[in-house]
């Protein structure tokens, strides 16, 4: 910004989300606002069912809010068509999920190549970058292994590499250590720390106190609201 304040890369305003469960309407978010500055490392914490994953999905354009707006790099997501939104997720955002969600029929290298192939990156270039990313997450020797042949920690590191494939502006992670044991969780913490040190903007939803402690800002949530920020 002209006054020297950095414009947020991610900006959610008065976000509300409700959905129907059986006969009831569940208020998952009740007017949440959150801005994330470039290079920031934000941890959203709170008990199960408080709406933190829903908030992450709205911020990532995976779901649409019932009310409020989300802007990513100045683009309001509500104004985008499905195709534009998909392209934005592909090129500007990186996602890491609790259950890794790698494609089991592809190798580690191919899983990382997938978003680049979708973005139209040339085969040689994407292969080279996928190898570099595997090296970055410490799995250079696992390139040819199928996802099913990797351990949980390795799968999550491949998922992080996949999230980085198209050089996204923001990485959104939903309970990234949720399926990992303590030791592999620590490896992922170190990886996230390194990512942030290298300039990545991170928004992480977590129960993991260690992971939250690594963040530059912790956003606590309860009953669909941010309790303080």
């Amino acid at each position: 910004m002209s006054d020297g304040i950095r414009a947020p890369v991610l900006d959610g305003r008065n976000l509300r989300k409700s959905y129907h469960l059986a006969e009831q309407t569940v208020q998952a978010l009740r007017g949440v606002s959150l801005s994330v500055a470039p290079g920031e490392y934000v941890a959203i914490v709170g008990p199960s069912g408080c709406g933190k994953s829903t908030l992450l999905q709205l911020l990532g354009g995976i779901d649409a809010p019932t009310g409020g707006t989300v802007s990513v790099l100045g683009t309001e997501l509500g104004q985008l068509s499905d195709r534009e939104l998909t392209h934005l997720r592909l090129t500007r955002l990186g996602f890491v999920f609790q259950r890794f969600h790698l494609l089991p029929v592809l190798t580690a290298l191919e899983n990382i190549e997938l978003p680049m192939a979708e973005a139209g990156v040339a085969r040689a270039e994407r292969r080279e970058r996928a190898r570099a990313l595997l090296d970055y997450v410490g799995l250079a020797d696992r390139a040819a292994h199928r996802a099913t042949q990797l351990s949980g920690g390795e799968m999550q590191r491949v998922a992080v590499a996949r999230a980085l494939a198209n050089r996204p502006a923001i990485i959104l992670a939903d309970e990234p250590t949720g399926e990992l044991d303590a030791a592999t969780g620590r490896e992922l913490l170190a990886l996230f720390r390194r990512l942030n040190a290298d300039g990545a903007t991170l928004v992480v939803v977590t129960h993991d106190e260690r992971l939250a402690a690594e963040a530059g800002r912790v956003v606590p949530m309860l009953d669909g609201m941010i309790t303080c920020s």
Binding site: L90, G94, H101
Partner: peptide
């Protein structure tokens, strides 16, 4: 479906 939703989440288009 979970995998497919993940693919869509990371930006794989409906056409793909």
């Amino acid at each position: 479906l979970g995998e497919i939703a993940t693919m869509r989440a990371i930006g794989v288009s409906r056409a793909s």
